[in-house]
């Protein structure tokens, strides 16, 4: 669900290539909208860019289970609990599709897992914010999944086949996530005074972090140009962010909630909503590991990994025993 254009580090873009060399032929295939498959020749920087992006995306799905998982036992009804379990299970599944796609590029699952657990890998900054009330579950579905869908739909046409195919599957499943979130917000917005306050509070806390999910503004985004040439990316961070703002502001109005931005206004000339300045210091602080929940999230992942160790070991021992038995019987 949650890709984020982190764009904060990485290698220089590949140098302009000889059109008849392998890099030139590769770019010609991309320009012709051909898909690249795992065993095809590809520039090393293309491979590394995709490994970084797909694994970060996978980690985001896995860590993304934590903030919502926090509310499974406290969901207000059996229906909401069943829905939330299904959603969190989907996020786990999305992580699995994406890890598999990344593995086709030559990195192992164990390496990616290690990068996540040691804190070497990045994941979407949005999951380092806490879920303080039930309304946060609604706000996450509506805003966070909404922003993720906006980011992900163009990746369904990504030049790398396995990533594009995983994304088609993910986008199909994602739509219910956003709708169930909006429905929660709608119920609260139409509810008691206390419920409306809760919904507004959730919007206040999730609005700006959701806008940051699209990554740094285009002027500061180092990889955008190369990623667009390679058709890994189809739109810039700012283009996607603007699309999200334009569709989401009217939804907030429908709910009778106020977007926490005093500078927000409709611009007749451009036919877009104009927002106030984004606090990029906050974005970089969270990305560097100093958001409200960074440590808690990683500790929860590590604890889950350790707690599951005996199950993994038992499964491997059982499989080895079965193989030995089969060999003896043969």
């Amino acid at each position: 669900m949650y890709t984020q254009a982190l764009d904060t580090h990485g290698k220089e873009a590949a140098a302009a290539a000889d059109p008849h060399g392998p890099a030139g032929r590769f770019q010609a295939r991309i320009d012709a909208e051909e898909k690249i498959e795992p065993k095809d020749w590809m520039p090393e920087t293309y491979r590394q860019t995709l490994i970084r992006q797909i694994s970060q995306h996978a980690h985001s799905e896995i860590v993304g289970m934590l903030p919502e998982g926090n509310w499974i036992t406290r969901a207000p009804s059996l229906k909401r609990k069943a829905v939330l379990i299904a959603k969190v299970q989907d996020e786990g599944g999305h992580g699995m599709y994406l890890y598999s796609a990344a593995e086709t590029l030559g990195i192992t699952r164990a390496e990616m897992l290690e990068q996540l657990l040691t804190g070497a890998a990045k994941y979407s900054s949005i999951f380092n914010y806490p879920t303080l009330s039930w309304a946060d579950v609604g706000a996450i579905g509506w805003l966070v999944d909404g922003a993720a869908i906006m980011n992900q739909i163009p990746i369904c046409r990504c030049s790398y086949g396995p990533y594009a195919r995983a994304m088609v599957r993910i986008c199909k499943e994602e739509s219910f996530h956003q709708r169930q979130g909006f429905e929660i917000m709608l119920m609260l917005a139409q509810g008691s005074h206390a419920q409306r306050v809760m919904a507004q509070d959730a919007l206040n806390r999730w609005w700006w972090p959701s806008l940051m999910m699209f990554g740094p503004s285009d002027a500061d985004s180092k990889h955008t140009a190369q990623s667009m040439r390679w058709k890994i990316k189809r739109f810039t961070n700012d283009e996607l962010r603007q699309k999200f703002i334009d569709i989401t502001v009217p939804q907030a109005h429908y709910l009778g909630l106020t977007i926490p931005d005093e500078a927000l206004r409709w611009d007749e000339a451009t036919q877009h909503y104009q927002i106030g300045p984004i606090d990029w210091n906050e974005f970089h602080t969270v990305l560097r590991g100093n958001g409200p929940c960074n440590r808690e999230r990683l500790e929860a992942r590590r604890a889950a990994h350790e707690a599951g160790r005996w199950v993994r070991e038992a499964a491997a021992a059982h499989a080895a025993k079965e193989r030995a038995r089969a060999a003896q019987a043969a």
Partner: peptide, 23 residues
């Protein structure tokens, strides 16, 4: 439809059910 890791074929089928046939 994709791939996954498992200790043996039986576990692979059980995981495939959870990962690829939730709907």
């Amino acid at each position: 439809v994709g791939s996954l890791h498992a200790t043996d074929a039986r576990m692979a089928i059980e995981h495939a059910r959870d990962v690829y046939t939730r709907r």
